[in-house]
Design a protein around this nucleic acid. Structure first.
Lengths: 107, 107
DNA sequence: CCACTACCTGTAGCGTTTCTACGCATAGCC
DNA sequence: GGCTATGCGTAGAAACGCTACAGGTAGTGG
């Protein structure tokens, strides 16, 4: 599946992946891949700027740590992030419903 | 609903609107608005370039005519357009299903 | 007659977002 | 020594919908 379609929906997906608990960037990529059954296999050039954007806007926070000799930046969803995620879920349901209606039922 | 989310899905929606029969640009806007219950109210600056793109790639054809003294360009979906629309429908179902899975079921 | 609205098409330039293609580094295995 | 997995990151390009603008006809209300 072309990931170009993600446009505008990626932030919500990242927040959803971070919702159950903190993860570092590399882990986010893996979890997104596994949760989507391989469909969303995002390159690091997409994921890291996106995480930086979310951090800049206060939807997640990041902290450096060292794990097995490798430095990691672990991201945690904030209260604002959870609120935003909730609204994005509602938006998504609405959007998907309308697309379904327009796309699936020619009249 | 922010129409920014349309990114990557607009072509399919336009083809779906043209599927039952030919329409001119202005009519496409109206039909898309009515079929989406007002959610997709696209500005002409979005719709006309998109129609030109679809025509350029051979998914629709356009013909000039005059109606009540006003010139119109009427668009008709081509066989290639129908084929493309079918594949887009499949793609959309897959995409929406994956987003649902990632977004709605935190694990 | 004039203003306003609906109808109808179109272009120019902007901003956002994801992508590709790199670069850099450590750990572990063969 | 070379390869893979882990791990973070930037630069530049490409795509696409948006805003703002431009231009025109037909009909209606004052």
């Amino acid at each position: 599946m072309s990931t170009e379609r993600l446009k505008g929906h990626l932030d919500a997906l990242l927040l959803a992946v971070l919702e159950p608990g903190p993860l570092h960037g590399y882990g986010v990529v893996e979890k997104l891949r596994s949760r989507s059954a391989g469909a969303f296999d995002l390159p690091s050039g997409t994921i890291y700027p996106a995480l930086h954007r979310l951090e800049r806007t206060g939807l997640i926070t990041g902290d450096w740590s060292v794990h097995n000799g490798r430095r990691r930046r672990t991201y945690t969803i904030t209260a604002a992030g959870r609120t935003y995620l909730a609204s994005e879920r509602t938006e998504w349901r609405g959007f998907a419903g309308v697309v379904d209606r327009v796309l699936e039922f020619p009249a």
